[in-house]
Write a protein that binds this DNA or RNA. Sequence first.
DNA 1: AAAAAAT
Length: 430
Amino acid sequence: MSKFVQMNLPPFLAQRLQQAGITAPTPIQQAAVPPALEGRDVMAQAKTGSGKTLAFLLPMIERALRPAAGPAQGRCPQYLILAPTRELALQIEMELRKYAPPSVTSLAVYGGTPIERHYRALKRPPLVVVGTPGRLLDLAGSGHLHLGAVTWLVMDEADQMLDRGFLRDIQRILGLLPRERQTLLFSATFSPEIQELARSMQRDPARISVDPGVSSPTTITHAYYVVPAEQSRTQLVHTLLQSVKAGERSMVFCDQKYKVRRLAAKLGGDPASVGSITGNHSQAQRERTLGAFRSGRLRSLVATDVAARGLDIPDVAQVIHYELPSNPNSYVHRTGRTGRAEKEGATYLILSESEEREYLRMVRQLRIQTKKLPLPTFVSLPPAAALPNGEPQAPPRHRRRNEQFHRTNGNSDGLHRRAASPVRSSGYGR
DNA sequence: AAAAAAT
């Protein structure tokens, strides 16, 4: 009997998993599935690429297939999964479709897509809704989506969902859900502050930490370069991108959108090989680019943190950090796009000399081993692709950035957040 | 301080 069946998951699920090459549960699945099946709340921490998605999808499928339990059965969504980015919501729903029988109906809802499509789809409500907070609230507010029958809530990347910027939306969504429900939180990273905050949202949760203090897989090799000048950053990235084997892919992360655009333009001599993705791209472009990258048509992807969390892309051999990430969690999640499911991976961080101390402090905190590498001989860059007309070559000015910040987050809100911001902690180096 | 997320 398969280990999945021993965990009280239905035999057909075990069979489907086996067909997909999954024969045994990972440690997080072994630890999280039983309490979830028993109806308990779960707060689960496990490193990137360790199988957290199936750890909540499998018990959810089992529960959805149990004989009807209440009057709402079949008429309203009973399972809600929240994710911090649109592509992640889509990926989770695809994963669900892969393993659940057709009777477990599902829908991914997120912004940047025509809302009419969601109106239409919700006329016959699915059992499971996977979505990002904004569009969910929009649909709930306009009466197209009823959340009053949700008895199972998952927050994937829960620490980000509960962070400022998302928290207010999450609280609104929680306000629409019944108190009597199961709440499951999953992430590779949970700060003590977020764990404390989660307390009010859960009831006696099973607290699971597979490898306490470890958020990054040991199959990933960490290394860094110190570059003398800004210009050599780009050349180094280009050189590293050339080093991967055929069939393998690379991701490059920058902190800001304009840097992604600038870097992608400089690297993009061969436009078929380097793509970019940020929140500035249209949703259609984002999905097209990610699809091309997943399928291998695109070998390298330059991105902001929109692609840092959760995305499961095959054969990402290396993750390159164009600069020191502003936050250690960001480093963990970006890096976690490689070295998934016990595979090997490599990550390279590019630093200026002045950042080395701060980086080494971060490394100590994250309990990872790293080593400084000598600069390789640079492979010469292709001629730069022209930047589209009027694209800023430099960061937007401070004032404009703040204006946009307030606008996109709701203005009165922005002011309060500003006043409260001193409590914020970066978690290291203070 | 930036990025993400509704229009």
